[in-house]
Amino acid sequence: MPEQSSLSAYHLLLQLEQQFDALLATIEAAVSLYEQQQPATWVFNQTTPTTHWLREALFDMWHEQDQDGRETRNYIAIVAANDELLTAASAVNQAKARFSELLQDIKQAFPQTLSEAKSRLPHRHPHVDEVLRRNGLARLHLKQSWRQLPIAQAPVSRVRFAWYSSGRSIKRLSVQEAEHKLLQLDTEAPHIRIQLRKLASIPSGEVLAQVQTQAPLMRANLFFTEPLEDGHTRRALNAAMPIFVPDNNQRLPHINLPASQPPTTRTRARRRDEKLEQDVFLPSLRIYRYR
């Protein structure tokens, strides 16, 4: 039985390597087509985009030294693509999706082999020596490898970019779960003991909220020249990767010029119905009480 399990894991690893090769080949086909066609392009913070900027963006799948694994590098751009280039971008998305699905299969069935898979894949990259020299270590950044390329469903008349810097994720926790997390910290530290006492003073059935502030991101509103089949005339999306829009006689849609850096203070009004207390309850865990 263990031999059969090892064989299954080996087969999945082989499939993953083959799919990674297919992903790289699909990206190469798309960027080569882009470099050949040189379509109208707008790249954030670049007056004149370099010929190879899309290659750099789509092949960027690596951790940089000291990079937080939760962070990803952004490539904010608009490409006015003809049908051939739109098809190539869609093929990249399909290859990314299949690669992501295989990784999830390995993670669920053979979690112990995931680190092996991540260490083997970089050496299949055609420029791995360059990556190793540049970064000192080639580690695959999974989030950057599978994130999709936004593709507009129809011709776009204008694009409005704006920084979104007040996003956050909220995870509901029980008092018992919060206590367990606190006990994993240095319980001899005075500030941890104070938080444990605070936690013990509230009802055991109370639900708490752990808040994670998200990094600022650029959002794009695409305004279509005609309503879509569902009647919508615009679509909002995160602009972390180049957005491919159908070319309109080889012209870009009208694009506003967003600030080069995200705002340092909150720009949106605080919601009146916000349900969390304003002051953090357990600072070490970013846990708040509900009002």
Rank of each mutant, 00 (worst) to 15 (best):
H141S: 12
S157W: 03
V211C: 02
L140N: 07
Q210F: 03
E206H: 10
R147D: 13
L196D: 02
W146S: 06
R172F: 08
H141T: 04
G231E: 07
S166Y: 05
A239W: 00
H191Y: 15
I194F: 12
L173N: 07
A189I: 05
S165C: 11
A220Q: 03
N248L: 07
A200D: 13
S204E: 14
E179L: 04
A209E: 08
S174V: 07
A215K: 13
N248T: 15
V156K: 02
R168N: 09
S201V: 05
A200W: 00
L222P: 03
H180A: 14
I243G: 04
L183G: 00
I194P: 00
L185S: 04
P246Q: 05
V156T: 07
A178Y: 05
I192S: 08
Q153V: 08
A200V: 04
I243Y: 00
A240Q: 06
M218N: 09
R133G: 13
M241I: 01
I202E: 04
Q212Y: 08
A162G: 04
Q176S: 14
V245S: 02
S166P: 00
A162M: 01
E229K: 09
S201W: 02
R197C: 10
R160F: 06
A209S: 13
N248C: 10
I194C: 08
F244K: 09
V156R: 03
Q214W: 00
R219D: 09
F223D: 08
A215S: 13
L142D: 06
Q195D: 12
N249L: 14
L208A: 02
F224C: 02
L173F: 06
N135T: 05
Q148V: 07
L222S: 06
A152V: 03
Q195Y: 04
S166R: 07
R139W: 05
F223S: 08
I243N: 04
Q176N: 11
L185F: 01
H180C: 00
P216S: 08
V128H: 13
K181H: 11
L137Y: 06
R235N: 11
L132I: 12
S166W: 02
Q148W: 01
D247A: 12
R158N: 09
K171V: 12
T233D: 08
M241Y: 09
A236I: 14
A162Q: 14
D129R: 14
L237I: 11
L208D: 05
T233H: 03
S165R: 06
A200G: 01
I170S: 00
S145K: 03
L222M: 12
S169T: 15
V175R: 11
H191G: 00
L199V: 01
W146C: 03
A215V: 10
S169Q: 13
G231L: 07
H191S: 13
F224Y: 15
L140C: 06
V175K: 14
H180R: 11
R197P: 00
L182N: 04
D129L: 14
L217A: 10
